[in-house]
Structures are given as C-alpha cells and as structure tokens.
C-alpha cells in the first residue's frame, strides 16, 4: 500500500470537491464533480475494494453525470440565480452555516479519531471471509453477501429502484417522444457500431461472472444502461426507443423483479426459508465454474435486468421532456 500516493489522491479529491462547489458555471462544476468520482473510484481500488470501485466508476461518475447533463440542458433557459440573496444579512447567509459545518466537522473528526489505528476483523466479517466458499459456493465474498447472506436487503434495494423509476416517470409524464435528431456524424456512428459489441460483451461478462470476479448485477446492468444512453446520443433519440420500446423496458424490469421473488419462493417451497441458497435445492457446483454458487447467477441476472431497464427508462423519461421543449 502506497501511503503517499493515497495522500495525493485524497488531496485531489478535496480540491476537486471544493472547486465543484465554488465554480459559478454549473457545467464545469458537473465535470469537476465527475472527476471527483473517478478519483474516488481509484482510491477504492487502492483500498482493496474492487466491487465498490467498479460501481463508483460506472454509476456515480458515468450514469449520474449523464443524468446531470440532461437535467442541465433541460433547464438552461432559465436565469441563473445569484449565489447569495441580497436582502438577507451576509452573516446569516455564509458565516453561520460555515461555523455550524466546521463545528460539526470537528466533532465528527474527534469521534472518528478514536476509531483509527490498528483494527482487526469483526467476528461476522471473519466468518464471511472464512466460510463463504463452503456456505454459498461463490468466490466473490461481496457478491455472496449481497445475494445470499443479505439477499433480502437487495430485494428491498431493487424495490427502491422501482420506486425511483415510477417517481421519475410519473413526474415527467405527459407528452410523447418526438422522433427528432439525426445523431452525430457518420464517422461516430460507424465507430460506435464497432465498439458496441465489445461494450455489450463487457457488460455481459460483469453480469454473468458476478459470483466469481468483482462485479455483478448492479454493475453489469448499469453498463447495459450506458449502452442505451450512448446509442441515444450517437444515433439520435428515436433509434434505441424504436427498437426497444419503453413498454418492453417495463416488461424487462418487471421480469427481473418476478425472477428475484420466484427464486426466493423456491426456497420457501423447500422449507428452507425465503431466498435461501444452498439449503434450497440449488447446486453449489464446482467452485470457479460459470454455473456454481447455487441461485447467485440467477439473482445476478434478475438484478441486472432490473437495474439496466430501470436506469435507461429514467434517462428516456428525462429526454422526453427535453424534446417537448424543443418543438
């Protein structure tokens, strides 16, 4: 572990976050913020958290930035409000919040200071590290935690994704998509056609090998959603929507949720409890092979369907409003 490299990265994270807050121009602030996200992914990889690094790089600095840009281009015609309001006294505007935040920061740091230093594995984590292979058949401990030990938690998480997609669709409903936009130039279209199979292959490898290597349903599904967004940017808005309609995206998303619950119910049918893996009749298989770890590949596919279809429908719901304004 290279301490000085880590220190430089932490410094850059703090500086880019500060710049993102201080910049007046929103577009530059978003780009700076996505750079903070990439730096944080690097730090996560250095701190031996490959799963988290992958998720951070794909979702926080890729997908969220594209959503930011869509929302920004939708609202760019309105005047930019001044940073601080004129009527209120300046001490209330800046000084009191700054004082509150620094006191809170000092208190938090004071509390965390006692946590630093030598730390050994807690009992539960040591158990997970030692027994995952025999209890689930998976090689990726974080994936096993998400889809076996804490699978109920993940079901709740996919419900949150469903709620977010419903919320965005309801808020931005009304109005139909106009088939406008011819996309970018011929060179970019052909280049994208060359790259798309490889990106899809990468997404599939992350998704299907989630129980063996870093990755899984969340990351693979997000890369699929990224492909949908790239197609929308490169080929024009109508292209991907005419091939995979929003109706079939809904079907895919619901299919993912149903697959997840069905796998869980199978455990109840065998008398082993909801979402139980190896006690239910799922075979552990040979460790390291594609069809191993019981129900985990199935659950990975379910989560991937849910996340991929859900995030791309959020993007398309935002784009729809954008085109109405341009009419």
């Amino acid at each position: 572990m290279n301490v000085s490299l880590l220190a430089v990265l932490y410094l850059f994270i703090a500086v880019t976050a500060l710049v993102a807050v201080l910049l007046e121009d929103l577009l530059s602030a978003f780009i700076t913020l996505s750079f903070t996200g990439v730096l944080m992914a690097t730090v996560f990889a250095l701190l031996r958290a490959p799963d988290v690094a992958l998720t951070q790089a794909i979702i926080n600095s890729g997908l969220v930035t594209s959503l930011l840009l869509v929302a920004y281009s939708q609202t760019r015609k309105t005047p930019h409000p001044p940073e601080v309001c004129d009527e209120c006294p300046s001490w209330l505007q800046v000084k009191v919040p700054a004082f509150v935040c620094s006191v809170l920061g000092l208190l938090l740091f004071r509390g965390l200071y006692s946590l630093a230093g030598e730390r050994s594995l807690p009992e539960a984590s040591a158990h997970y590290l030692a027994r995952t292979l025999e209890e689930t058949g998976a090689l990726n401990v974080v994936g096993a935690l998400l889809l076996d030990y804490r699978a109920f938690d993940t079901l709740g998480e996919t419900t949150v994704i469903f709620a977010a997609v419903s919320g965005v669709s309801i808020l931005l409903s009304g109005g139909k998509r106009v088939h406008s936009g011819h996309g970018l130039s011929y060179i970019v279209k052909r280049g994208m056609a060359l790259l798309t199979p490889f990106i899809l292959l990468y997404a599939a490898s992350i998704l299907f090998l989630g129980h063996l290597t870093p990755g899984g349903g969340f990351q693979g599904g997000s890369v699929f959603a990224t492909v949908a967004i790239l197609m929308c940017v490169v080929y024009g808005t109508g292209f991907e929507a005419s091939r995979i309609s929003s109706k079939s995206k809904e079907t895919l998303e619901a299919g993912g949720a149903i697959l997840f619950v069905l796998v869980g119910l199978l455990g109840i049918a065998w008398g082993a409890g909801f979402l139980s893996n190896l006690p239910a009749p799922f075979s552990a298989g040979t460790p390291g092979s594609l069809l191993s770890a019981g129900s985990m590949p199935l659950l990975n596919i379910a989560v991937g369907l849910k996340v991929g279809a859900g995030l791309s429908s959020i993007f398309y719901a935002m784009i729809k409003i954008l085109e109405l304004e341009d009419e």
């Binding site: 979702i59 926080n60 998480e157 969340f218």
Partner: peptide, 14 residues
C-alpha cells in the same frame, strides 16, 4: 479486508 462495509457501500451507491 472487511467485506461487509463494501456490500453496504455498493447498496448506498445504487
């Protein structure tokens, strides 16, 4: 390293 916070962090990101 401790895998449990990693799983929590992954959930939090999504």
């Amino acid at each position: 390293v401790d895998p449990l916070p990693h799983a929590l962090t992954l959930t939090a990101i999504v």
